[in-house]
């Protein structure tokens, strides 16, 4: 079978992969690279659990082909923060009780990250719009919005 060589930046590191042309970005991350922080909730771009950043913009990795990553930069939840140093968003999600089952959390964090990267003082309405593609069934979004607002302030400090 044909394979394609791609090179891209993943969570700040240069990567080279030999992949099948039809491989989905989500499957490359989860199955080939073991980055299981990115979740598969529907496989059809409806739920946003698989959201990753593509050159800083949130996309559904279940709808993207891995070959599209060639020459670009991908950020997953694993690249957001670490055990030792959490991203302010991750800390705010913990502090505000914005995490329940956690399945939407990685995607939610990345959509929020993309927002805060371009707007460090978002209104509630802007936050709600930014995460409107990420479904959460547990929290009613209230504490998630609060956490994102808090993280924006933490960033300024």
């Amino acid at each position: 079978m044909n394979t394609i060589n791609i090179s891209f930046k993943l969570n700040g590191k240069d990567m080279k992969m030999e992949i099948k042309p039809q491989l989905l970005l989500l499957d490359m991350l989860r199955e080939e690279l073991g980055l299981t922080g990115t979740k598969n909730g529907c496989g059809e771009g409806d739920c946003g659990a698989c959201t990753v950043l593509f050159d800083g913009k949130p996309i559904c990795s279940c709808l993207a082909l891995a070959v599209n990553a060639d020459g670009h930069e991908i950020t997953t939840v694993e690249g957001l923060g670490s055990e030792e140093k959490l991203d302010p968003l991750q800390q705010a999600f913990i502090d505000e009780g914005a995490v329940q089952c956690g399945f939407c959390t990685p995607g939610m964090l990345l959509s929020a990250k993309a927002l805060l990267n371009k707007n460090n003082d978002p209104s509630d309405a802007e936050i709600k719009r930014a995460i409107s593609g990420n479904l959460c069934r547990c929290t009613g979004y209230t504490k998630i919005v609060k956490a994102i607002k808090k993280a924006a302030k933490m960033k300024e400090v």
Binding site: Q100, T139, G140, K143
Partner: peptide
């Protein structure tokens, strides 16, 4: 609160 907010949703 988290249960109430999620339940209402």
């Amino acid at each position: 609160e988290g249960q109430i907010e999620g339940g209402v949703s």
